[in-house]
């Protein structure tokens, strides 16, 4: 079970991901999107998922039991190739329902000093 003290805490990313035109093109192609000058609206998940997975696994949750509950994106600045992105993760809530642990993590994708994209993942860790 997630340590309740972690709820509300922000884990500032320690590395930066540089968005390549190839990564946008392959993600767009997988979705049948021909526009590649700007990333598809869900592209941020390619950066946020790994960061949230590492954080929650390090916090003791079993990733092999996870089911994706919901996802939300707020895009302030669309992502484009060449941006260097830091991903800060905040555990916004954690609750137990019928033995399942439901955790919401917000990932803020920071470009230079500005938040370009916030994305919320609700993950259900099955009992």
């Amino acid at each position: 079970m997630l340590n309740p003290d972690l709820v509300g805490r922000t884990f500032v990313g320690t590395t930066k991901t540089t968005i390549s035109s190839e990564s946008i093109a392959s993600f767009a192609d997988a979705l049948g999107e021909s526009e590649t000058t700007v990333a598809p609206p869900t592209f941020g998940i390619t950066i946020s998922l790994e960061e949230s997975q590492t954080l929650l696994q390090d916090s003791g949750l079993d990733w092999s039991r996870v089911v994706h509950g919901d996802q939300r994106f707020e895009i302030f600045t669309p992502l484009i190739a060449g941006m260097q992105v830091r991903c800060d993760c905040t555990i916004e809530s954690a609750r137990v329902v019928a033995g399942n642990e439901i955790v919401t993590v917000r990932a803020d994708l920071i470009v230079e000093t500005k938040n370009a994209v916030s994305t919320w993942s609700t993950l259900v860790f099955r009992a």
Binding site: L31, V38, W120
Partner: peptide, 25 residues
């Protein structure tokens, strides 16, 4: 959700015009 995002980008005219997007699985 990504496929639905493609649909929305197409409606909006560009992925650059999508400001918010959410869904439950």
């Amino acid at each position: 959700m990504g496929l639905v995002g493609q649909y929305i980008s197409q409606i909006a005219g560009s992925s650059a015009k999508v400001r918010e997007f959410s869904a439950r699985f």
